[in-house]
């Protein structure tokens, strides 16, 4: 359910401050943040390390509460919900995708996808069917019985996406979903997320420092020192859009191939072609201004 204006997320004058502890001063992670996200929208939140973008994502997902202001998601004002209601909200309304995948290592792919359904007491048979269908949707049906330690990073993230969709959430929140992936997996994961957005009408919010990833979204919110300093409408990244890091990877692959063919050794510690000034062209898919902080760490 969204509000009358069709917004799934309404953030009004949101502040998040962390009280001073010991020698550490008070931290103002978010200051007077207001924005709306329409139902079915695709929004990237982009900013440098420490800018508050992950804090904002946590607030949208009900993992944290604002110090002031209000956040309404799918018609529910999160600041008015009890601890139990927040847990219910997270289980039913939001799907999380994390940079580090966060799959439970003792569980198989299918069991990991079933977890959110257990939170809402879905029957075992129904949960199993739904999990298998989701794994098929993300191309992981053959890995359903495998545990995370037998999967690549890209595969784990696809399972994590399936898990995020388990309870048919209105909102999928992805925190640096491609941060730990190579370029091929990054493209596959973002394609998957956008497909879900298009087919299911699920609203997608992606925190990223990467312009290429942000380019998959309609809009990019720029955040700096806890304030939203700009909103950019993107020209979407397409299948033909080059990923600047892909060029780096391709160069590295070529070097590896050459090394193997010539048998010459290479110092593994030596830098690859990736580095400042190389392969860091602005993405074609994103409109200007978003490339100055491409290499920032996660906030």
């Amino acid at each position: 359910m969204s509000d009358a204006a069709g917004s799934v997320v309404i953030a009004e004058k949101v502040y998040r401050e962390y009280a001073a502890q010991g020698d550490a001063e008070e931290v103002k992670a978010l200051r007077n943040v207001s924005f709306r996200i329409p139902k079915g929208g695709r929004v990237a939140i982009k900013g440098e390390s420490g800018s508050g973008k992950s804090t904002l994502l946590n607030l949208l997902g009900g993992l944290d509460l604002p110090s002031r202001g209000s956040i309404v998601v799918n018609g529910q004002d999160l600041t008015n919900l009890s601890e139990r209601e927040l847990a219910r909200f997270r289980a039913t309304t939001v799907g999380f995708v994390f940079q580090a995948f966060n799959l439970v290592p003792t569980l198989t792919a299918r069991e990991n996808v079933e977890l959110p359904m257990e939170a809402v007491n879905t029957g075992a048979a129904e949960a199993k069917d739904r999990a298998l269908a989701l794994l098929e949707a993300v191309g992981m049906e053959e890995r359903a019985a495998h545990r995370p330690n037998r999967m690549s990073g890209g595969e784990q993230q696809r399972v994590a996406i399936a898990r995020a969709l388990a309870n048919r959430p209105a909102l999928v929140l992805a925190d640096e979903p491609t941060g730990n992936l190579d370029t091929k997996s990054r493209r596959a994961v973002m394609r998957l997320l956008t497909e879900v957005n298009e087919k299911e009408g699920t609203t997608l919010v992606v925190v990223t420092h990467n312009s290429y990833t942000a380019g998959y979204c309609d809009t990019t919110l720029r955040i700096h020192r806890g304030r939203i300093i700009g909103q950019v409408t993107n020209r979407r990244t397409s299948e033909t859009t080059p990923d600047p890091e892909e060029e780096d990877d391709a160069a590295a692959d070529a070097a590896d191939a050459e090394e193997e063919s010539t048998g010459s050794g290479r110092d593994e510690r030596a830098p690859t072609s990736k580095g400042p000034g190389t392969g860091r062209k602005p993405t074609a898919g994103a409109r200007k201004t978003d490339d100055d902080d491409d290499d920032d760490d996660d906030s």
Partner: peptide, 9 residues
Amino acid sequence: LLKAIGFGN
């Protein structure tokens, strides 16, 4: 993670 995906206390 369990708490994040909706497991109650």
